[in-house]
Design a protein around this nucleic acid. Structure first.
Lengths: 232, 232, 232, 232
DNA sequence: AATGAATGAGGTTTCATTCAT
DNA sequence: GATGAATGAAACCTCATTCAT
């Protein structure tokens, strides 16, 4: 993980020697979060370049100068936004660990729905849009994304698929292909609405939960062992 | 289709008052194309905001002033790029019409590969990235994308899927779900490499042709009628 | 002497309402001095504009707010620095008064060395650099410098030179010229090292004490009466 | 000589491929000079930090943006000013070469007056002030100054003094001391007026030509061979 | 028609100064 | 009295756009 995308060192409100006053301490502690939220909103709606630092500050209810007390530059603020909201999902996924008892098809559904509940329906769209838009100008962003999102997701999901194969619930398909199919589904789910949000006529509206279910069912129907003649 | 994304009225090179010389005429006629190519390259590499008009002009081998003679503003140039390269694929798909004779699984494979050959491997990634990045600031872009890309694609692909169902090659699945699965596959195919291009360690590299084949096979294995007879 | 460069009214630590505690009183009484020293260091190293008030405060071990309690603005702090360190030398010279008994050449040497010991080797370089750099933006600085430095120095040194002429140790030269020669020597001594401090190759390094001696000897050799007798 | 103070590559007006028009070419060719003059004036009167780029532009009769077409930053403009006006004197001194026929005392006078005519009375004061003020923040400036000014001057003047000693016009004094005395004189001549320019009462006004003559006479009177008894 | 010098609005960032605690 | 979080004016610099040539 490259330096500049390293894990957040939260602008240390606790590093202050003497707590000047409870009120001010509290306000100071809240600022990073306020600013990140404002920045997330602006960056995802207008894009990095089209967002003015003053807009972010105003939306957070502070002045321009205050923003720069907490983040040394617009670029660092951007990276902090990416880190903050990505780390959110990464941490959220950590405890989805492998002690699942039921069928693997239900495990995959659970994983998908958990992802959607915890991240997909809130920040995934914005964050992913930002990564797509800005990765060309920020090589460290690509590495961060791969290391923190792709790799853990790949491992998590491929273990689940492998479990299905091992338990002979699934045909012995190529695991990676299934993982990619699920990733593609998730990506489409977050990006398609972005690209069609403002449209009057949309021939193919997308209801998230229903879309997820349908896609997973379609996928599972291709994975499941055919009821072999001998077994019937 | 709203005004500003309207079908290209090619910056009328033929409207020139007097054909000063054949050479000049030819050069002049090539300008819009050169500028579009240069702009495409810059916009997709650096993004809209980070591309300077001067860079585009230089790459096209003309001066800044000339660029503004052909396109009245950077924004219009951007839209022209989107239009130009999207229309390319739309037109290309038009004649893939319905006189297909073989099996529907092969029809879907053919459509996918044709798309990849004509657009996917060349401009789809760049154009789609630009749409994702800029649609927030350009509502007309969303409508244009839906009208010119989503709608025709939806119609084309859903007809093909319906054909499969009608011919009892496929189970009577929800057509839209299959279309979306294909779209998601295509979207993943063009965006995933973008987001991982500069990475050292990529746990899940993606080979386009192989990826497409695998995903379509996976999908088809979920679509195909189970060997009938015993169940019927 | 204009208002704003007026003799220091030390930021009245004794005006405090109630002597809260001896320790606090002592610390408070030391503040102006600490701040001046910190400011001197920063101003002379980085220049007026490049010095941030926060740097000064930090170096003095207080907060930004405290600095502004003692000096109402950065500009006033700057002037206080100039005043403080210039007044130091002026006061130091006052008692070098005219009860010198030996030869006038030794008197001049004594004056030069005293100046060097008390001011030249410590603060003269920094203060003079600041005056040169900032006098353009602070007319009162020029008047202060003339009134407090040039005039007293001129009087002191010219009396010494006149004494040498009166006692026929020196030729009847123009007194002002000798004073200027000495001033030029002093000025060169403090500025030349500044301008060459960071250089790798310096073809003309300057050792202060030796330089002073040599220059004064050179000057005196031009001042001394030729061995009289044959010429008279 | 370090990179960033390297000899001026004049913002190449001649590098243009096609001379767009005589008028514009002429204007373009004049811009660097106009900007340098304006910048010199502003920098020397207000200092580097206190000069706004817009002031320079306005004084040069152009807009802010134009300044940055010719010099990529305020810092580079500053260095260009230093280079331009220092190189002026350096080049001017190059042909004062050693074919002097008269007495060495007249040679020294000639050198001093030439320096004054060509540089001292015009730009020396400003340039030297800038060097003193900014050298602390620009190490390369120190090296440039030493390499381009101190070293050549030292060589030129020390050859002249050595000539006087060789021809037995001067006592066998330490050459460096004489060079330093002359440099100190020159430095005082340019800086003293700066520091006293705006004063009402100046007890020691300085008339340049007279000052130079007096100081050189004083120096020479210390250098000349005493009329030895044997020769008389 | 083409050029590229010029413009100036607009963006990021800094930092002296204030003031609630 | 001391603190340091907050402010916002002001500075540097960029670059889309214009227009004289």
């Amino acid at each position: 993980m490259p330096d500049r995308m390293a894990r957040p060192q939260p602008p240390s409100p606790e590093a202050a020697c003497e707590p000047s006053s409870p009120t001010r301490q509290r306000r100071k502690a809240e600022r990073p979060q306020q600013l990140l939220e404002a920045a997330y909103t602006q960056f995802t709606t207008r894009g990095l370049a089209a967002t003015r630092t003053e807009d972010v500050a105003q939306l957070a209810g502070v002045s321009k100068g205050t923003l720069f007390r907490y983040y040394p530059s617009k670029d660092e603020l951007f990276k902090a936004v990416i880190r903050h909201y990505l780390v959110e999902v990464i941490d959220a996924s950590r405890d989805l660990s492998d002690q699942w008892q039921g069928g693997t098809d239900d495990l995959l559904k659970m994983l998908a729905h958990t992802w959607w509940q915890r991240f997909g329906q809130s920040h995934a769209a914005g964050i992913f849009k930002l990564i797509v838009a800005e990765v060309g100008n920020m090589p460290e962003l690509a590495q961060f994304y791969v290391d923190e999102v792709i790799t853990p997701t790949y491992q998590l999901v491929s273990r689940a698929v492998q479990r299905g194969i091992d338990r002979q619930e699934f045909r012995p398909v190529e695991v990676t292909a299934v993982v990619q199919a699920l990733m593609a589904t998730a990506q489409f789910l977050v990006l398609y609405p972005q690209c069609t949000a403002t449209c009057q006529h949309n021939p193919m509206p997308l209801e998230p939960e229903r879309f997820m279910n349908t896609q997973i069912d379609l996928l599972l129907s291709g994975l499941r062992q055919p009821p072999s003649g001998r077994e019937g």
